[in-house]
Nucleic acid binder design. Structure first.
Lengths: 220, 220
DNA sequence: TATTGTGAACCTCTTCACAGCT
DNA sequence: AGCTGTGAAGAGGTTCACAATA
């Protein structure tokens, strides 16, 4: 049951909007750091690389945080965004695949800020299991179920070779993970209740080469 | 001058379409490896995680590669996609910032396939400059201009701390780079002729926590 | 019969323009 | 006067439905 069975409520924010919120938050934090206490939608938009109307529409979906004639209070807005994005919570991460990329991810700032916390690391290679990365000991993937059993809902990060990504994802889902960040170049086939975000280096590069080719062709 | 000053030509493929092409290509390669020579839009769509109509629309933008009643020839389609994505070309990459993430990227399979080739590595830290990563020696970023001078148009990869990402991007653009893949959590402000694709780990995680929160709220 | 290729309807996001507030 | 919040218009992408075709 949803809380809004009549369909009269406000539309949920689009994925595009949700993806912009962290950008606003980051820009606002920098503004706060440089002593700015108020910002207009135009200024915030320029810093975030979008249009001013987009900023106002995005923010208005969550409430009226601005003051007409003045703009938005930076601290207030950071707080509101932080709350919507879950920044005031603890978000345990389970990372599977502690190779070059997995290690880099675990050590990255993005994985250690805003409430995210590396809760457990798994791999299958004997020479990796038992080592410590960023203060967390790597366990064998076979211990997944035993280790995660009593843990709260987690976000799973798949940084394995593509050949095992599907199986790893299925086992993560089986232990209760409903949000997966997948770095393996493989489309994960999972139930409808599971959210997957795909980060694919090869795809990123291929999109770029597509447009490079196109530019060349148009300059003939 | 464009090749189509009348505006009568077919619409260019949308970014969404371009981002799906590498996925199709990867799925098709796997199909070819498993001995499949023909595939329907329905089957290809299921494997790529999209709808069948999307596949047909996407592919039809580039030509009529299918056979009615039969489907698509896998080899033919791989070849066509490869050509459109520039897979038959050499794409030199310039990677700046050889920390944990930069090293992982350079060693990743995505950076060494499909015509992409790590051409030069740069960093500013004295203990990194001079080391060899994946067979390429890391140079000091000050040598960028001298090193890249005569090189063909490249794709630039920014894997630096966010504080220097903007300056690094500007210098890359100054030496002729028009496509940038940015891993630094910073909005790059560059001229309109420069393409930027942003990969932001922190944003990915925050998008996930947003939806996790939303799920919790709807289950009250 | 099976499946593609595609115009049209549909839906979603963006942009515009301005009323409303400070 | 300046800026937000928002309905309406516009643009773009997806889904539908089916004619075309092997």
């Amino acid at each position: 049951m949803r809380g809004d069975p009549t369909g009269r409520g406000p539309r949920p924010p689009s994925l595009a909007t949700v993806e912009r919120l962290p950008v606003y938050q980051r820009v606002l934090s920098e503004l706060l750091g440089s002593g700015t206490s108020t910002v207009s939608s135009e200024h915030l938009a320029a810093a975030a690389g979008v249009g001013a109307a987009v900023v106002r529409k995005d923010l208005s979906l969550f409430g009226s945080f601005g003051t007409r004639g003045m703009g938005y209070d930076v601290s207030l807005l950071i707080g509101e965004l932080d709350r919507r994005l879950g920044g005031d919570r603890d978000w345990p991460l389970i990372v599977v695949g502690i190779g070059n990329l997995g290690t880099a991810l675990v050590n990255s700032e993005g994985f250690r800020s805003r409430g995210f916390r590396v809760a457990a690391l798994f791999d299958a290679a004997p020479d990796v299991v038992g080592t410590t990365v960023a203060g967390v000991q790597v366990r064998h993937f076979d211990e997944l179920e035993a280790t995660v059993a009593g843990t709260a809902a987690c976000i799973g990060v798949v940084a394995t070779p593509p050949s095992v990504a599907q199986a790893v994802a299925e086992r993560l889902v089986a232990v209760g993970v409903r949000s997966l960040l997948n770095f393996a170049p493989r489309v994960l086939q999972l139930g409808p209740g599971v959210r997957v975000r795909q980060v694919d280096l090869s795809t990123e590069l291929q999109v770029m080469s597509f447009y490079e080719l196109r530019d060349e062709a148009s300059q003939l």
